[in-house]
Write a protein that binds this DNA or RNA. Structure first.
Length: 509
RNA sequence: GGCCCGUUGGUCAAGCGGUCAAGACACCGGCCUCUCACGCCGGUAACGGGAGUUCGAUUCUCCCACGGGUCACCA
């Protein structure tokens, strides 16, 4: 993994990191972190620490490379700014081999050339007759350098674009493209390498065997192919991943995820909403390997790390990020957690994002664990929430501090007057001693006494011929106690709330 | 504009010359002795267009269209 320390982390970075990590660790390899800080303009203070911290939150630990404290590994340094001597040694070799030369063009010169190329409908770039310093007299060049003229070091391409080269990519399969003829920049005027040069030198000296990077690098692959061979290095395997895309509501087309338009593109989004790290990983795995979902349904409890990850199973076209699907994945992840794990997750999240909720939860953790246990753990666990920020709303009625009833929640067909009578009567019969069955028998009896049927089959077949059903009565009770029409098992809720609270809420209703 | 990559239901996708073209999400019905959720059963819905190769093309070739990427002293 070789990010720039820009301080912002994108879902695409994580997508790449997960595939890097899986490929490394399923093949007995080493997962390396190298910091690509060759561009000063993009560097942000603390960016490296942030990258490491974020990856760690997703369980991605590097075997080797840059760490917050320094370097870990024998092929360092792992920050490109500290590796100048490596680049300069290879640059010297290329110059001596006649494969690199100084170029004195200013930005202005290059811009002019570009405009000319445009008007003459020629290909852009520095090549052929446009490479004006390529065949400059060596003494003249030395003289200019001695005079302190600014220059960059360019690659001397020997490629012929008439010729095609075949290339085997780990994800895209067989590719074919023209040979490179661009004399691209190796060292910038400040002596710092460009990505193209740095990656070749670093990957060689760091003994990298597999490069996994985004498909935006495909177009410069011919450059890299020629450069690898000019350096005399053995090329690693390359795999170019498809991009994570997003459906644009405005234009109705797929496009790259954008930091500005798509909140879900930044990792902070997942932290703020409180999605478990595993949910994100799980979803990325479904995007990454098409057979992951199948494997998952056969191995519901296994760690995703047990899955046999294959680059050949990675999609070669960009995948849309689907929030609805992601939420479903996350619900499944949470549904498999124990009440304790759920509490832990909500606690950690609320501590940072919802202090009121955090205080309530930590006041009595056993109580919280108990209500998180409702409908959890069995064969058919509830799937109520996709992230921790949704939890509060689901469990608010367990706390008097959060509990409130909106009149509109009560069923319309029952008048306020009738409702009060029903609830008053229910107070008389409600007992903390009842078990699940006894509890429901009382609700049924109550319904019958007010003329509501308990024969649901008959009611469904012919609802008009009844005043209402036991559903209506239990909804009245449910709203009075939970403030909402939908909830998990009401008996379990009442048991947890305790007799006094239940009666109090019924009285206040 | 050049070059490269891609195009199967609303979305993610399997498929790798002969399939009634999987599966998942979403959606719509139905069932599950209170709601919701879960689960189960069922349903709607797809090979961008045109040539060619072939007994036979979603699968192979070519052309076109569309989408994406790239053409920096950014990565």
């Amino acid at each position: 993994m070789a990010p720039s320390p820009t301080g912002s982390m994108h879902i695409g970075n994580l997508y790449g990191a997960v595939s890097d990590e899986r490929i490394a660790h399923t093949s007995g390899g080493t997962f390396i972190l190298r910091i690509e800080d060759t561009d000063d303009k993009r560097k942000v203070e603390g960016g490296v620490e942030k990258i490491i911290k974020y990856f760690s939150r997703f369980g991605l630990e590097f075997d080797e490379g840059a760490t917050a404290e320094g370097d870990n590994g024998k092929y360092g340094p792992y920050r490109q700014r500290q590796r100048a001597k490596f680049y300069h040694i290879i640059a010297r070799k290329l110059v001596l081999d006649g494969r690199a030369y100084p170029c004195f063009c200013s930005e202005e010169d290059l811009k002019l050339a570009h405009e000319k190329q445009e008007s003459e409908k020629e290909n852009f770039g520095y090549y052929g007759k446009w490479a004006i310093h390529r065949d400059m007299d060596i003494d003249e060049a030395i003289e200019k350098i001695k005079n302190g003229e600014s220059f960059v070091l360019r690659f001397r391409s020997l490629g012929n674009p008439e010729k095609k080269i075949d290339f085997k990519d780990g994800i895209k399969g067989n590719l074919s493209f023209p040979e490179n003829n661009q004399d691209f920049v190796l060292l910038k005027s400040d002596g710092i390498p460009t990505y193209h040069f740095a990656h070749v030198v670093d990957d060689h000296f760091m003994r990298v065997t597999d490069v996994v990077r985004g498909e935006e690098w495909l177009s410069t692959l011919p450059w890299h192919v020629e450069l690898w061979s000019a350096c005399g290095f053995k090329r690693p395997r390359f795999s170019h991943t498809a991009q994570v895309l997003k459906f644009d509501e405005e234009t109705g087309a797929k496009r790259k995820m954008s930091k500005r338009k798509d909140p879900e593109s930044t990792l902070e989004f997942y932290f703020e909403k409180g999605y478990p790290a595993n949910s994100v990983l799980e979803y990325l795995m479904t995007l990454l390997n098409s057979n992951f979902e199948q494997w998952r349904s056969a191995n519901p409890m296994a760690s995703y790390k047990e899955f046999d990850f294959k680059t050949s199973k990675m999609g070669s076209s960009g995948a849309l990020f689907d929030l609805a699907k992601f939420n479903d994945v996350s619900k499944n992840v949470i549904a498999k957690m124990s009440a304790e794990e759920v509490l832990e997750g909500v606690l950690a999240w609320s501590k940072e994002y919802d202090n009121e909720f955090y205080t309530l939860l930590s006041k009595d953790k056993e109580y919280a664990k108990a209500f998180f246990s409702i409908g959890r753990g069995g064969k058919k666990p509830r799937k109520d929430f996709a992230c921790w920020s949704e939890v509060k709303d689901f469990v608010s009625y367990f706390y008097n501090e959060l509990f409130s009833v909106n009149e509109e929640e009560y069923p319309e067909k029952i008048s306020a007057d009738e409702r009060k009578k029903i609830l008053a009567e229910y107070i008389n019969v409600y007992s903390a001693e009842d078990d699940q069955n006894g509890w429901f028998e009382k609700v049924k009896a109550l319904s019958e006494s007010f003329g509501y049927t308990t024969d649901m089959k008959a009611y469904k077949q012919n609802p008009e011929s009844f005043k209402g059903s036991v559903t209506d009565v239990s909804t009245v009770i449910r709203v009075a106690i939970t403030g909402r029409q939908n909830s998990p098992d009401l008996f379990a809720i009442c048991s947890l709330l305790g007799y006094d609270t239940v009666i109090e809420r019924l009285k206040n209703a």
